[in-house]
Structure formats: C-alpha cells, structure tokens
Design a protein around this nucleic acid. Structure first.
Lengths: 264, 264
DNA sequence: CGGGCCGTTGACGCAACTCAATCTGCGTGG
DNA sequence: CCACGCAGATTGAGTTGCGTCAACGGCCCG
C-alpha cells in the first residue's frame, strides 16, 4: 500500500471549493461559509438566487427544543437539514434493539442524506440541547440541480464528504485506543469551533458522556475515566460539559501516536 | 428512541426501485439487475440509451489481475467503477500509517464515490484475486445527469446506499462481538451470492483472513479461531477459502442475538 | 529444497467492560 | 425554601474478550 498519500483522520474536513471558486463566498445569512447552501448560488444573479433559495428552503430557521426529534428512522424522507446552531445526533437502531450514534452534526453540517436511497430515513435525528436548523426540500433540490450544475455538483460533494467522514470513523473504531477515540471527538468539536471563529479556550461540549461513549463504542465509565486522565495530564480542564484550557496540539499529538510514553 | 422501525443490519441491501419502476429491468449485458448502470436507461429509447452509455462507460469490461490497484488514495478522481466479477477492497491509510479496509465490493457494487468531494480518491482500491470491472466517466455522468433526471436520482441513491452501508458497519464494529462480526461478513457475501442467483451451499470467499480481520477490527488469530468454532458448531464447513454446508439461518440467528447459550 | 505467505492453535496479559457505590446538579412539588 | 427523586458523572474492584506472542503445518513458487 506504499505510494498512497496518508490522510489526517481528525483534521480532514476537506472542503476545498477550488473547482468552483465562485461558491467560496460566505453565506450572508449565517456566516457558515462554504458549507451553507445559499453560498452556492453566488454564480447566479442575485434575484435568481433569492428566488431559487426561497423555493428550496422550507424554513429559513427553525428552532428545535432540547432533545427533540427532527425525523425518525423509517419516516418518509423528503427533507435535508442543515444545522444552524447547537448540535444534532443521528442514531441507527438495529434489529436486535441496539442503538448506534452514527454522527454528531455541528453548525453548517448537512444531515438526513441517508434517507435518499429508500425514501425513508435510515436513522433517527435528535437535537442535543437547543438547536436551530434549516430545512431543505429535497425533491426541489433535485429538480433545481438539473438546471444548476454547480448545485448538483455540490450535493454530490456533500454526500461524498459524508462517506469520507464515515470511513474515517470506521478506521478510528477499529484501530484506535479508547483514549484516542475520546481525543478524536474533543478535537473534532474544537476544530469545528475554530473554523467557525469561536474560541477553543473555553467551550461547552454538546453531548453527554453516554452519547460520546455510544458513538465511540465505549462504556460510559471508560469515557469518564479518560477525561479525568486527560485532566490529570494537563491536557484540559473539564467540569461536566464545560471545557477550558484545552491543549489542542497536545491532544492532537496524543490522538496520532497514542502517546506511548507518559500515560499511566 | 421508541417508535422508530428497527433495521436488519446484514440483510438490508435495500434497493427498491419502487419510484422508478422502469429502471427495474435487468441489464442485458451483465444480469446485475437494478444495480448496473445500463439498466437505468430503460426509460429512454434504445438508441438514445446506447448512445449515452457508450459515452459514459470508459471500458465496457476491463480485466484486472490478482491484487492489482484500480486507483490509489489521493490519485486524481474522475472515474467510478462497477464490479462485474470477482471482488474489490478499498483501503484507507491514515496519518499514523494505519490501514483500514473500508469495504468489500462484489459484482454489481459501485465504488470510488469517495473521490467526488476532493476530486482525489480518499481510499486505495485493490482487487482480491482476479476481477473485472467497468469504468464510468464521472464528469460525463454528471453532465448527462442534468438532462436525465432518473440518472441523477440513481447516483444520489447509490451514494446514499454507501452512506447507509457505512453506518451499519459502524454499528457492528461498536456493538457486536467478534463472532457476530465474522458472521456478518460471511452472511453479507452469501446473501450477495443468493441475490446473484448463485448457490450458497458451496462457494469461495474472496478475501483472506487478514483482510477480513482488518475490516472487522479484529486480530487474524481471532478470525481463524471463530471460523473453527463455527465449524465445530456445525454452522459451516470451511477449508481455506472454500465454504460449504453453510447454515444461513443459523448464522443469521447467531449474528442477531450472539447466541447467548451453547457457545463455549 | 528452502523461504515466504497463509492459516491454525495454545498460553498469557491487558485494555476495556461490568457491577456497584457514591456524588453532583437540577427540576419538581410539597 | 428545602426535600426529594432522578439522571448524569465519577471512581474503585473484579472480570473477560480479545490481542499478543510464539510455535507449527500446509501450500505455492522460485
């Protein structure tokens, strides 16, 4: 397998709008930059863009309460969602009654794509705490995509991004230790905050220990112990969901190499 | 999480062409039924369909030798592949040099989708033994998709299928025992054979123990031990890669419930 | 015939799970 | 306002599933 370029598993939120430079403009509504749908239409005229957007976006901003369902597994699918604020989890329930959190979605992230194939959602989505989302009418998105090729391309890319993301998670679950997994979730969230121009020195993680554990395939106790250990090592301060003084570089190093030494 | 319909993790190769009944016709070239790209054009006229196909498919049938690369991680992306015969694996290489097999692809399966986002493949793909594939020109596929809506929809669905598949694997890696994981790979392959109208009473698995172990996040020895155990339990006969007398229902039961009792 | 790869089997150790006890914070109702 | 209950989080003790290490057999190929 020599010759292939290696990939950075956490820091690989690769969305380089190189081939569509015009879509790089940050969205005026939500400053979610490239991720947000509206930004896509920079190429079209302003009025055409506004018209398309209006028909595409069901609710420009919908508030979702704490721990509220957006859709449930097997509900008929016809809308995609973009997180505006807060965070959302998607959960897969299998035939033996076992639940698996397949992903956490943060502002700018698109979710609900898993419903496209069967026309029914493959997962249940639930907000973690309060959140706001915007809802995109998928049938219309498909229709408009046929005459706005850059939009079609964008949707393809968003889906491929989701595939890449899941592949990375798969790799982490298979080959990384519990410590590295926990570091992964923390890092992904912190890096997300940084991309969104927020401070990473003081923040609140949106998910419970239980959710984190479930997503990472660990026991709650293990997550708790590891967070305490990180604290003892001076990687961060954490009280409940309040994180401060996080050593990003240190954690990243730890994620990569598992820190063979000095982890007792 | 009550109210959601549970999903069968192995047997969920859901591709119901309900909304596009015309695309249900089996492909005349390869009898891969709904999965194959050509079948898609059933709606168009025969001549138009042939014309489109000709420009879309780079090689109607390309032979790939044993253990040969189709593309490598970070190669520039411009073609998708469909397996015609044999099998293919895709491998993700991360920054710490760790390899993860992200999927096995069997006849009719589409792979290479992970390159769409960055315009570079996110994984390396390699044939397991000899195989034949057909290569689809993605830029042309995108172009044609804009004026053949059913094709656009098909591509969306294929991508969503990949997302669903990865979510299921994620769930299995997190919550299933080593035995259930091995059962999963065996079942997925056997069910694939059945869909393709082959016998499931006598067949050869395409991957080595090492590949299976890597994909499932297990040690080779564990896979070996579990296969021996399955044999002792009369679930199947296996010598090398030759499988016979496999008890599909039994394995499925075992996959679901881990068979609390009688597994020593 | 010898070296390499693949697969199998056994002995042993450890990372992470399970069980159980305790603590904290928070909402609810008396 | 405090008491209570409950869910979330922490910590310790004991257990275990699976990884690691090591030895060995079969098979292919040079």
């Amino acid at each position: 397998m020599n010759g292939a370029t290696k990939i950075d598993l956490v820091n690989a939120e690769t969305f380089t709008p190189a081939s569509h430079p015009e879509s790089n403009a940050p969205c005026l509504n939500c400053r979610l930059s490239e991720y947000c749908l509206p930004a896509l239409f920079a190429a079209s005229s302003q009025t055409q863009r506004d018209h398309l957007l209006k028909s595409l976006v069901r609710q420009q901003e919908a508030h979702v309460l704490k721990r509220q369902y957006l859709f449930r597994q097997n509900d008929p699918f016809n809308t995609l969602y973009i997180v505006r604020s807060g965070a959302v989890k998607t959960v897969l329930l299998d035939s033996s009654g076992c639940e698996q959190i397949t992903g956490f979605y943060y502002p700018g992230d698109l979710f609900g794509l898993d419903g496209i194939n069967t026309h029914h959602y493959a997962t249940t989505s639930m907000s973690l705490g309060n959140a706001t989302v915007c809802a995109v009418d998928f049938p219309k998105l498909e229709k408009i995509s046929t005459f706005v090729p850059s939009l079609q391309h964008h949707v393809f890319r968003m889906m491929a991004r989701e595939i890449e993301r899941n592949q990375r998670v798969m790799s982490i679950l298979n080959h990384k230790t519990a410590e590295q997994r926990v570091a992964f979730v923390l890092l992904r969230y912190a890096l997300h905050l940084r991309r969104m121009q927020h401070t990473t020195q003081e923040f609140t993680i949106p998910m419970s220990r239980k959710d984190m554990a479930n997503h990472l395939g660990l026991a709650v106790e293990t997550v708790s112990r590891i967070l305490s250990r990180f604290q003892r090592l001076g990687m961060l301060e954490i009280r409940g969901r309040q994180v401060s003084a996080m050593n990003l570089a240190g954690l990243q190093e730890h994620f990569e190499n598992g820190d063979e030494h000095s982890m007792q």
